[in-house]
Amino acid sequence: MKKIRLQVNGTWRSGWAAPGQTLLEFLRTELDCTEVKHGCGKGDCGACTVILNGMAVDSCLVLSLQVDGSAVVTAKGLGTKENPHPLQKAFIETGAFQCGFCTPGMILSAKALLDTNPQPTKAEIRRGLSGNLCRCTGYRKIEEAVTAAVDYSSKNHGSTEDSTH
């Protein structure tokens, strides 16, 4: 066991990391970041996606001991109810979720895509979301939402960067 520090959504947090423990387990059990979802634990579903040092990763495939000192962004860290992140606003307006279990991961994969490629093509959006499974929506509204978020962002001539970074 080792105490590690992570910057989660801009705030430094610490907790006990154990050998073999994944970042997903660390976030959920040590830090109670339950907005990061456990769908499979082996890289198949993308529900556990977080942004780790600027890159979208399946947190179930990363060991907690390896990320001491890193910065993590979860879906909770993107915007506020009054001032939602363009992706959050677009997901709500488009209706891009049903049960909402895949949604945090889906939004973070989309965010990582838009951060590096603010004007993605339809094919690029699809590729960016291809590691995230959704059993409810049939994906159509999710694609629409990401497209809408691109529009909002370019209209606000801002970026899709969140406030914590």
Partner: peptide, 15 residues
């Protein structure tokens, strides 16, 4: 829009 939308887009909907 879905009434639980904000909870769902932030991952705060409690399962």
């Amino acid at each position: 829009p879905e009434i639980h939308g904000w909870a769902k887009v932030t991952g705060q909907a409690t399962f």
